[in-house]
Simulated assay, not measured.
Amino acid sequence: MDHRHLALLWELSERGTVTAVARATHRTPSAVSQQLRTAQREFGVPLVEPDGRGLRLTEAGQVLAAGGRELARVTERIQAAWDGFLGQPTGRVTVAALPSAASVLLPGVLDELSAGAIELQCADVDVAESAYAELVGDHDIVIAHSLTRRAPAGTEGLVSIRLAREPLDIALDVDHPLARRTELTPDLLADQEWVGVPIGFPFDTVRLAVEAANGAEVRVVQRIRDNLLVEALIEGTERVAVLPRFTCPHSPQVVLRPLRVVDAARYIFAILRPDRAERLAVRTVLDSLQHHASRLTQGLPGSRP
């Protein structure tokens, strides 16, 4: 039984298409297809079957893909034990992170790990909540957010660790008439112009909650993903927006006010594939992320860059 065939079947079960597997494993689609045919000859049963224009695993293929997943976990567990024996975690750890969370977590993590043998490679990603789970195939740790206490959709079968709960506040220019209040209610926001986020992004649920409380739609004039750009678009205006409390604002001209009645918060998660969660280097980075997230939520010195 060739363990490479098990790994290939698992990759196909995770990524869904031969093209995606080829891209992730730095092979051509024809090479992946050839290896699938070789695997089928080895096991003597069909492992994949046509599914539209693509392929899907047969029941036999699913059994072997599960074996590939378990084999990967065992391999990483052995590597972790060996790293522990040597006394030092080593290797590259890739992190894909939501930019606003990354801006306050990763500087401290990079500084903490700078004296060790771990190479931390970071990427910033800002996608809809349901798309974060897709990133774990290409990154060791994905830092995502959810508007519920549960991990983002699609993370079933993955390792999900909650790093922090971050309140979501209403952001206003410091001279906005509502900025004089210590807290806001949905009725005060009914007639305001909003700078929102794309539909499907977590912060949009706050806008929906305000509309539900008021029984009427608010006026969204822009839909923007980047928090810095959101700040720029409300600065010097009477527009309002939703921004996270710990990681924004960056401009002294923008203030945050809590929203009463509506329970507005996001939950920041680290999500990983189970096999990669076994690696000592990955666990070391994860421990550092948890440490700096706790400092952030407690408002401790050094918790923001």
Rank of each mutant, 00 (worst) to 15 (best):
H3T: 13
R4A: 12
R4L: 08
L6G: 06
L9G: 04
W10M: 09
L12D: 02
S13Q: 12
S13C: 01
T17D: 08
T17F: 05
T19Y: 12
V21T: 02
A22K: 08
H26L: 15
T28R: 15
T28G: 14
A31L: 15
S33C: 09
T38W: 11
E42G: 01
L47W: 00
P50G: 09
D51V: 11
R53Y: 12
L55S: 10
L57E: 03
T58Y: 08
A60D: 14
V63H: 12
E70R: 15
L71D: 14
A72F: 04
R73F: 11
V74H: 14
I78K: 12
A80R: 07
D83S: 12
Q88A: 10
R92P: 00
A97P: 03
A101F: 03
V104L: 09
L106C: 10
V109S: 03
D111E: 15
E112D: 14
E112K: 12
S114I: 10
A115H: 15
A117W: 11
Q121L: 13
V125D: 08
D126R: 13
V127S: 04
S130P: 00
L135P: 00
D138Y: 04
H139K: 00
D140A: 03
V142F: 02
I143T: 01
A144H: 01
H145L: 10
S146W: 01
L147E: 04
R149G: 13
R149W: 05
T155E: 06
E156Y: 09
G157D: 10
V159Y: 02
S160M: 04
I161R: 05
L163M: 07
R165L: 03
P167Q: 06
D173T: 09
H176P: 03
A179T: 04
T182L: 02
E183F: 14
P186A: 04
D187V: 00
L188W: 01
L189Q: 02
L189I: 05
A190F: 02
Q192C: 13
V197G: 00
I199S: 13
F201W: 10
T205H: 10
L208E: 12
E211T: 10
A213P: 04
G215L: 04
A216E: 15
A216K: 14
E217G: 11
R219Y: 14
R223Y: 06
I224L: 15
R225G: 14
T237Y: 09
T237N: 07
T237F: 06
T237A: 07
E238V: 08
V240W: 05
V242M: 03
P249M: 04
P252W: 06
P252R: 06
V254F: 03
L256M: 07
V261I: 08
V262D: 02
A264N: 00
R266V: 07
R266I: 11
R266A: 09
I268R: 03
L272E: 09
D275Y: 14
A281P: 11
V282Q: 03
R283E: 07
L286G: 02
L289I: 00
Q290S: 13
H291A: 13
A293H: 04
L296R: 07
G302Q: 06
G302I: 05
S303D: 09
S303P: 06
P305M: 07
